[in-house]
């Protein structure tokens, strides 16, 4: 009887025991800080022993009165839209190109993917040199190609060029990541479908539209979601890029950049926590909207 009860206990508790290490770690390093940051967002944190309860005051100020927050939110949203619109076609285009039989195909695949192996800070430092208005290779190339003696292009200080410059650097960094996913998805599409469609007289565009695209749809949706989330969380790249080039335009300020300024420059951790939770809400909304629009649940089923 005892052995049976022991076995029964083991049977019932084993899953929980296996899960326990993860749950414990998540509780300590994930759930508790999240809960604390949510609580913090209802306080004005001034200093030791000087937490003042402000209720929804931080949220109210950010949404109703803080114009800088709105500028940062608009910058980030604009960047995210442009990023996803360029990131997906460029990654897919590159994957389609490298899915063909080319000489040195593996080398090209590695070369395009290798940019994702370096960090955002590293890329920012490199691009701050490339974007140098007078001596940078990008300015010199544009000057050469245009045939005019352009003495300088202010990539990182001209308010109209800042976001496109950040976009170029970020796309250079991340296209390889999307390309690898698309390549894997392309190779999973059944070749017999192409053969059958070709026999039926389908052209290249129809093959792409009716076979390739539906075949890679789950990966496409995944990359759109991940790309959007990454774009909204943009921080290190513009921060280091603009800092190292001495640019201080508000056009380069992102939501997470503003969170950092509030939390670690002004020391207002409560306000910074509120920015973080607004970003969470924004991301949840955008992700859900995207999932619904793209029919993610259908794709999964």
């Amino acid at each position: 009887m005892n052995a049976r009860r022991l076995w029964h206990w083991q049977y019932r508790s084993a899953p929980y025991l296996f899960l326990a290490p993860f749950i414990l770690l998540f509780a300590v390093f994930g759930a508790w800080p999240l809960a604390r940051s949510l609580m913090l967002s209802f306080f004005a944190s001034v200093g030791p022993g000087q937490m003042r309860f402000v209720g929804l005051g931080n949220y109210r100020f950010l949404i109703l009165h803080d114009r800088v927050f709105w500028i940062a939110a608009l910058n980030t949203t604009g960047f995210a839209v442009a990023y996803v619109l360029l990131y997906i076609p460029l990654s897919l285009g590159l994957a389609l190109l490298l899915n063909r039989r080319l000489r040195l195909r593996s080398l090209f695949r590695f070369a395009f993917f290798s940019t994702t192996l370096v960090g955002q800070v590293f890329v920012a430092v490199i691009f701050s040199q490339l974007f140098d208005p007078r001596h940078g290779i990008i300015s010199l190339t544009v000057s050469f190609l245009s045939g005019h003696a352009i003495t300088e292009i202010n990539w990182l200080t001209d308010p109209n060029l800042i976001l496109p410059s950040i976009l170029i650097a970020d796309l250079w960094l991340s296209i390889g990541f999307g390309m690898i996913y698309f390549l894997a998805a392309l190779q999973a599409v059944d070749p017999q479908l192409y053969e059958a469609a070709a026999v039926d007289g389908a052209g290249r565009f129809r093959l792409f539209w009716h076979i390739t695209l539906p075949g890679i749809r789950p990966v496409l949706i995944f990359l759109v979601l991940v790309g959007t989330i990454n774009a909204f969380q943009l921080f290190e790249l513009p921060w280091v890029l603009l800092q190292s080039s001495g640019s201080s335009s508000v056009r380069g300020l992102t939501i997470v950049g503003y969170l950092f300024l509030k939390g670690f420059q002004q020391g207002d951790l409560g306000n910074a926590a509120a920015i973080g939770w607004i970003l969470v809400a924004l991301l949840a909304f955008v992700s859900l909207a995207q999932a619904r629009l793209s029919g993610l649940s259908r794709a999964v089923s």
Partner: peptide, 23 residues
């Protein structure tokens, strides 16, 4: 003060706009 760095950032925001105006 806790706001000096913020003020300097904001002066930088204005400067990029006035430089764009001059250009």
């Amino acid at each position: 003060t806790p706001y000096s760095a913020t003020a300097q950032n904001e002066l930088g925001y204005v400067l990029t706009r006035t430089v764009a105006h001059e250009r």
